[in-house]
Amino acid sequence: MERIPILRMGQFLLVTIQVDMHDRLAVQLQDDLTEKISECSSRGVLIDISTLEIVDSFIGRMLANIAAMARVLDAETVVVGMQPAVAITLVELGMSLSGVRTALNVETGMELLYELRGDFNSEMGG
């Protein structure tokens, strides 16, 4: 079965969503991520959705769920790169994803993760 790859970068996990996801793939990602956070004792998850052309209520719910589940597993989640048109649509749809942290791109997302973990100086892989 098709899967979205999850990259491990030191204490963080990086997911880049690049396909037009059907719902089962989204559920699969949710399972895989929680599994991986627990397995790697990850402290943070970065989800890059910059190539995603739409986020509907299903994908929005998935993002919110991942963030909530990760928090229970003591990991922070940052969603990065949402496109303007996608953000405008999502707001109109009525979703504000208030429990999900966001950043402009992978770089600022990483900075935010370090900031949230309170250790600016630690290098990746530490």
Binding site: V80, V86, A87, V91, L97, N105, T108, G109
Partner: peptide, 12 residues
């Protein structure tokens, strides 16, 4: 408020 929420979703 909508504008602010959309900006936040993008990380600003």
């Amino acid at each position: 408020l909508k504008t602010i929420t959309a900006a936040r979703l993008m990380g600003a």
